[in-house]
Structure formats: C-alpha cells, structure tokens
C-alpha cells in the first residue's frame, strides 16, 4: 500500500513536468512528414515545437547548442533520407556535422538522450509520430535540462 502510494506520487511528479523539445525539420521531407502526420490524425505527444528549415544542411550546430543553453530539454533534428535530399547532398553534410557534434557533446557530459537525430520522408507521417514519441521518451528519461542555467 505504502509502495503503491509512492509509485503513484512518483508518477504524478513526472507527469507534472512536461519536457520542452525543439524540432528542426527540413522543408522538403520531414516538415511535410509532420504535416502528413497531422492530416492523417496520427497521435503523438504535444511536447515538440517545430522550426522549419530549408534543409537539414541549414542546421547550424549553433541552433542546437543555443537551444540547449536556452533551457530546451531536448532536440530533434530530422531531414530527408540519404539519397533523397532536395539539394542533393545537404543531408550528407549535415550527417557528418551531427555525428561530430553529438560525439563531442556527449564527451563533454551532455546526456545522449537529449540529442535526437533522424530521417523522415514526406510520406512517413506514421513514422514521424513514432519518432516524436521515442524522442519524448528519451528526453523524459533524463529529466529537465539544467546544464547551462546561470546562477544569477
């Protein structure tokens, strides 16, 4: 009984905290995929705020680090699948950039769960919903981001 109450209290506490996740989606594939998810009434958690960018290659690592430093709890970045980039190679450039960025951030102590990268095509509304769900789970597992909070 006591155990149950504790469990319930825990559940409530984590329920109270809603992670804020910023998503950078490329215009041609992932944003369209998100749109499709909406049109097809795919259910996914409402924790993400979408920033539409022309291409995943447009995503400067600054966007990601700035978001983390501004207190966003997690990041989702999505572009076209390899081979499908509207600008031919934007997502290849982006992939190297994210690989290095992610390795380095994790090395310096950022939890990997906060950094989510994926590909979603314009036809993958379903997949978009799942990716968001997975991202929210990831971010929830590490709690609020207080890494770069200033103490003034």
């Amino acid at each position: 009984m006591v155990e149950e109450t504790k469990q319930a209290a825990k559940g409530e506490a984590s329920e109270e905290w809603k992670p804020k996740i910023i998503a950078f989606l490329c215009n041609w594939c992932s944003y369209a995929g998100a749109d499709l998810a909406g049109v097809s009434r795919v259910q996914y958690p409402p924790n993400i705020r979408i920033v539409r960018v022309p291409c995943s290659g447009r995503i400067n690592p600054f966007f990601i680090i700035k978001s983390l430093s501004a207190g966003w709890d997690g990041i989702l970045v999505s572009g076209c699948h390899p081979g499908d980039c509207h600008y031919i190679s934007g997502n290849y450039v982006a992939r190297r950039r994210f690989a290095i960025l992610r390795d380095l951030l994790i090395f310096m102590g950022v939890q990997p769960e906060r950094l989510n990268f994926t590909w979603v095509s314009a036809a993958e509304g379903e997949r978009f919903g799942k990716v968001v769900k997975k991202t929210v789970e990831n971010v929830k597992s590490v709690g609020p981001n207080k890494m770069f909070e200033k103490d003034w």
């Binding site: 190679s89 290849y92 190297r96 950039r97 994210f98 992610r102 990268f117 994926t118 799942k130 991202t135």
Partner: peptide, 19 residues
Amino acid sequence: PPMGAHKFEDGQEFMIEED
C-alpha cells in the same frame, strides 16, 4: 578535410529508429 567531404555510406548508427 572531413567537414568538406561526405559519402553515402558515412556512419549513422546514432539516428533514432521508431521502435
């Protein structure tokens, strides 16, 4: 330099999958 080049097969093991 690696940031000025890319390949189709570059590693992407860190990408999230839906399940």
